[in-house]
């Protein structure tokens, strides 16, 4: 191969990377461009904070933002302790084979399609919530966040375990040598040392919970309202996009879904930056070793 053709291939590699990176920026540009009438003259803030009443000419997405936050935050409230418990079980409490088996099951869980969770949610979880809490149709914030918790837990557990494993062994051995138990070792050494990893895991899981469409769309009920309790129906930004898309095509009402898209894009950007910072912190921690 000549030096010339070698350079051509290298250029191609660069072109591929550039195109992929460019697409990321391009997506943002497209969303803003198509939602344009809604973004001009500082109307974006207004849209974020006003109610959805298309017949009165108000296309605010405030109820959807609250719905998204309520569902995903509640999902995190369920998922965090569950994942922390499972991660402790896998890396600290159980030993040998059992620990490996549980880990395999958790890994396999990350491969379960979202739509399958949604499907089972409709026919198994919703009747359960309806009967146990006597909560109307059962399609509510609580059902959606329970199912989302199941969706995001495996990722969180694996990241927790990974960050526990990254803590240098010698630190832990020092505790054991002083007569400490494995739980003491975990509480006083492993946990404080692995906080950047925990931040990364929680942020990633939150991103998945906010970005997931199918579960909320299928089991949260999709009423456009600011949910007053966990038994109220709610609509997320993602399901709003899917629902309005299916209904209508050329009006200002339709343009509002691009405002949802832009909000989700910006939210993702913030989460990615948080993850970057946390990973950077972990890098610093590594230098101490």
């Amino acid at each position: 191969m000549t030096a010339g053709s070698e350079r051509v291939v290298e250029r191609l590699f660069f072109a591929a990377a550039f195109v992929s990176a460019f697409v990321t920026v391009f997506i943002f540009g497209f969303l803003v461009y198509y939602g344009l009438p809604l973004f001009s003259g500082g109307r974006f803030i207004e849209i974020l904070s006003s109610p959805w009443a298309p017949h009165q000419g108000s296309f605010g997405i405030y109820p959807m933002i609250v719905g998204t936050l309520a569902i995903s935050m509640l999902a995190m409230v369920f998922a965090f302790p569950l994942s922390m418990g499972c991660a402790i079980l896998i890396s600290v409490v159980s030993r040998g084979r059992l620990s490996k088996v549980i880990r395999k099951v958790v890994e396999a869980m990350t491969g379960i399609p979202t739509v399958v969770y949604g499907f089972v949610g409709i026919f198994l979880l919703i009747p359960l919530v309806r009967n146990v809490f006597d909560a109307g149709s059962g399609m509510c914030v609580l059902s959606a966040s329970l199912m989302l918790a199941v969706l995001v837990s495996p990722t969180m557990i694996l990241f927790f375990c990974d960050s526990f494993d990254r803590v240098p062994r010698s630190y832990g051995h020092a505790v054991l040598a002083l007569g400490g138990t494995r739980i003491q070792q975990f509480l006083h050494v492993t946990l404080p040392c692995s906080w950047p990893g925990i931040v990364v895991a929680v942020t990633l899981a939150l991103g998945r919970a906010v970005g997931d469409t199918l579960i909320a769309l299928m089991i949260a009920g999709n009423a456009v309202q600011v949910p007053g309790s966990v038994f109220d129906s709610a609509r997320t930004l993602t399901s709003h996009i899917a629902l309005v898309f299916a209904a209508d095509n050329e009006s200002l009402e339709f343009k509002a879904i691009f405002a949802c898209g832009v909000s989700l894009y910006l939210f993702t950007t913030i989460l990615v930056l948080i993850i970057r910072l946390a990973v950077h912190e972990r890098g610093k921690c590594g230098q101490v070793r």
């Binding site: 992929s20 697409v23 990321t24 997506i27 497209f30 969303l31 991103g207 906010v210 970005g211 997931d212 469409t213 993602t238 996009i241 899917a242 898309f245 879904i257 691009f258 898209g261 989700l264 894009y265 993702t268 950007t269 989460l271 990615v272 993850i275 970057r276």
Partner: peptide
């Protein structure tokens, strides 16, 4: 990282 984090509905909208 940003592209990987984008919700799939946003990609769909794009």
């Amino acid at each position: 990282d940003l592209l990987a984090g984008l919700p799939s509905i946003v990609i769909g909208l794009f």
